[in-house]
Design a protein around this nucleic acid. Sequence first.
DNA 1: AGCGTGACGAACT
DNA 2: TAGTTCGCCACGC
Length: 105
Amino acid sequence: MHLREHVYALVATIPRGRVTTYGAIGKALGTRGYRAIGQILHRNPHWPDVPCHRVVAQNGSLASHYGIGGPQHQEKLLREEGVLIENGRVCMERHVFHFSSIAEK
DNA sequence: AGCGTGACGAACT
DNA sequence: TAGTTCGCCACGC
């Protein structure tokens, strides 16, 4: 099983109005290949089943080159879900989603 | 099959 | 605090 499958499966569980980070995903899956996760989401073929717009950097900044309609589209999508975005960054303390369980390998 | 690149992040300097 | 290096994984060439 490839890492990408796990990433998609995990991201698919993120509830509406919540966000997570590349680091959190990597940690949950037991890998440090954060860059790979970025690329995997960039080429997300499962939209909207896999809500990749809910994945942001650890400091709350949005994806630098969002692949589905530009960075502005990601921000729009998040706002529509009620996510607070200040100064181009998501209010993490308020919206971060903690994966309940371990990786599903 | 090997190499460079990238929606990252932590450790160094 | 800011800039650089390194680790890790998938992909295109």
